[in-house]
């Protein structure tokens, strides 16, 4: 029984970005998906999980303020079912890493990630979490959290608008809808999941060599 394309209310499938990764995931799952009943159960559970992602209140700097205004009344991400931001990692499903992760904060983030209950996701909000952002060349900043924990969705922006954060959460919902739960390979079950090699577009000019005309 084929797994259908994930549907999000009031946004057509084509208008989403980066559908190729999703289609690769779907193709991979459809290869092993034989049993109809298990397939149906999978869809039901994925529907349940994707509509109730409780995020951990984890905000280190400016993106944390945008994270708060996403929770406030104007953008109100309670509409999507993410209303309850849990403070203890045990009850949270997802870490929204909003802000810069420095060398001193990296072990704390890793420890929080390990304490979360299993179907867990990570959303990297803002340039600092994706690649170190404005502080890429600093001696104390981790250039991107995908060096220490696997990241599911990247939301660029410095800080990203609340609507961009909501759009990122909807992307995460689509990714949760495309997961195999009963029997068979699930992205999270492969232990020792190695984050893929982060690419560096240009090595950041630490000894500032710009102004080459000198």
């Amino acid at each position: 029984m084929e797994m259908k394309k994930p549907v999000i209310k009031s946004i057509p499938y084509e208008e989403f970005k980066d559908n190729e990764t999703l289609e690769a995931l779907i193709a991979e799952i459809n290869k092993e998906r034989t049993n109809v009943v298990l397939g149906r159960l999978d869809d039901l559970i994925n529907w349940g999980r994707s509509n109730s992602l409780w995020s951990l209140t984890f905000a280190t700097s400016c993106c944390g303020i945008e994270f708060m205004s996403v929770g406030a009344s104007r953008y109100d991400f309670a509409r999507f079912g993410f209303e309850v931001t849990r403070n203890s990692p045990r009850q949270a499903d997802l870490i929204m890493c909003a802000g810069t992760i420095t060398h001193k904060m990296a072990p704390v983030l890793k420890r929080l990630y390990d304490q979360m209950a299993e179907p867990k996701y990570v959303v990297a909000v803002g340039g600092c979490a994706i690649s170190g952002g404005p502080f890429k060349g600093s001696y104390h900043v981790l250039n991107g959290i995908d060096k220490i924990i696997p990241v599911d969705v990247y939301i660029p922006g410095c800080p990203p608008r609340p609507e961009a954060i909501l759009y990122g959460m909807m992307q995460l919902q689509r990714k949760v809808k495309v997961e195999k739960f009963f029997g068979g390979k699930n992205k999270h079950q492969q232990k020792g999941y190695m984050p893929d090699e982060p690419i560096i577009v240009t090595n950041c000019p630490t000894e500032q060599t710009n102004g080459k005309d000198e």
């Binding site: 400016c62 303020i65 810069t100 420095t102 001193k104 600093s138 900043v141 500032q208």
Partner: peptide
């Protein structure tokens, strides 16, 4: 120190217009 990003060290290797962007991220 959990969010110490070494802004003052970065400013020493940035031109003046480039250092402007760091002040927004100090006390946002």
């Amino acid at each position: 120190g959990y969010i110490h990003r070494g802004i003052e060290k970065l400013c020493e290797s940035r031109t003046y217009p480039q250092t402007l962007a760091f002040t927004d991220r100090l006390d946002y």
